[in-house]
């Protein structure tokens, strides 16, 4: 079983001037631009007395956002709701806008990692930084598709490209927290056994630590530039 390495990540912070925090995040060839606003004023009808509300807008590269974008929004929203310290800012709203610039696979994890950096760039108080990893399970080339996938004849690919995602028999996006590496959010599709799921979980957890290190390095570079 082959474990591939994570594709190269790049991050440009504070790219937009009018947002509270913004980031251009790329994972391999997939690029997203994330803008974060908050805490901002909110209409009385939407306000929550005890905590802030989170709104997410997912915009595709071309066209009007449809239900596919609505579906991805609920993931980003759920992750933000658990990581932002909402009870510190009651009666306000946090808005996150994710604009897809290029989609070459692993879009959800790229968006969540970008959101994480954008929230940090905006200085929004968080309980942890969410770290997302996309894993694809692909049968090895020599093995046919009908083989029972309980055997070890498959590769574990991190941050798969579009072609790898299509050829894989299972795709998972796992979101961990940066502090305790607990699982925050999951998206898994494709037939897999419980054992394979556990295996992906373990390997993704290890990989998430390198992503956290990347976040740390990006932030320290930005702060060092400011200081100088």
């Amino acid at each position: 079983m082959l474990l591939s390495t994570l594709s190269e990540m790049k991050c440009k912070q504070n790219v937009l001037k009018s947002t509270d925090g913004s980031v251009e995040f790329s994972q391999g060839d997939t690029v997203v631009l994330v803008g974060a606003y908050g805490p901002a004023d909110c209409k009385e009808s939407k306000q929550d007395v005890k905590e802030a509300i989170v709104e997410v807008n997912f915009r595709p590269k071309i066209g009007i956002p449809g239900i596919a974008e609505k579906y991805l929004e609920q993931f980003v929203k759920g992750v933000c709701e658990s990581c932002i310290q909402r009870s510190l800012h009651p009666r306000t709203t946090f808005s996150i806008i994710v604009q897809v610039i290029q989609d070459r696979g692993s879009l959800l994890s790229c968006a969540i990692n970008g959101t994480s950096m954008a929230l940090q760039d905006a200085g929004i108080s968080m309980k942890f930084m969410p770290v997302a990893v996309t894993v694809a399970l692909k049968h090895k080339e020599e093995v046919s598709m009908e083989t029972d996938c309980g055997t070890e004849d498959y590769d574990v690919i991190f941050s798969p490209s579009l072609e790898e995602e299509e050829k894989a028999f299972a795709n998972l996006t796992l979101v961990f927290d940066s502090v305790k590496s607990e699982l925050v959010s999951t998206y898994a599709s494709g037939p897999m056994t419980s054992f394979q799921y556990q295996q992906c979980l373990m390997s993704a957890k290890n990989v998430s630590k390198s992503i956290v290190q990347f976040f740390r390095d990006s932030v320290s570079k930005k702060l060092a530039a400011d200081v100088l």
Binding site: F75, G78, C80, S82, V184, Y187, A188, S189, T193, S194
Partner: peptide
């Protein structure tokens, strides 16, 4: 077999709970 799983976030869950 598990063919689809989605957890849009909200709270962190321990692995044993997911199992």
């Amino acid at each position: 077999r598990i063919i689809y799983m989605e957890r849009p976030g909200g709270v962190t869950l321990q692995e044993e709970h997911v199992e």
